[in-house]
């Protein structure tokens, strides 16, 4: 599997796909996309890298253990929910900061935090699965 072409492509694609996945996640509140889809794309980037260079190098690039990402994602999601409770609202009530920049309104809210959590969990869980299965094969 370790072909030079694949390795070159993977090295190039990795940052692009990660950027794209973050973009998908961020725009998800208004356009098709969202944390889940973004997360799958992000996981795909590392999976590709793992195919090209082996799971060990992919783990190296990822730095964190995917299970840590998974845990962090869950933590972020719960905290986004508790954010509202601190402010006296029900669990998971959206809290919003609205900026007016020129013509456009800019909404920044806990929903985004929530989606980031989803993103992290999806990346973490998918990579946990893929890495361990690939390590089993090699």
């Amino acid at each position: 599997m370790k072909s030079l072409i694949l390795q070159t492509i993977a090295r190039l694609l990795l940052p692009l796909m990660i950027l794209f996945s973050v973009f998908l996640m961020l725009r998800g509140h208004n356009e098709p996309g969202g944390g889940f889809i973004g997360g799958l794309v992000g996981a795909g980037a590392f999976s590709l890298y793992a195919v090209a260079f082996g799971p060990a190098s992919a783990r190296g690039v990822l730095r964190a253990d995917p299970r840590t990402l998974l845990g962090l994602g869950l933590l972020v999601t719960v905290l986004s929910g508790f954010f509202a409770m601190v402010l006296g609202d029900a669990f998971l009530t959206g809290q919003w900061l609205i900026f007016h920049i020129g013509e456009a309104d800019f909404h920044l809210g806990t929903a985004l935090l929530f989606d980031i959590g989803v993103y992290l969990v999806v990346v973490g869980a998918t990579l946990t699965v893929i890495f361990s299965l690939e390590e089993e094969s090699t």
Binding site: H29, E31, G81, I98, H107
Partner: peptide, 21 residues
Amino acid sequence: TAHGRNIVNVILVDFRALDTL
């Protein structure tokens, strides 16, 4: 109310965020 144009996503992260959790 929920500041999102993609209704499906709003349901997922707000109206029914507990499902997503």
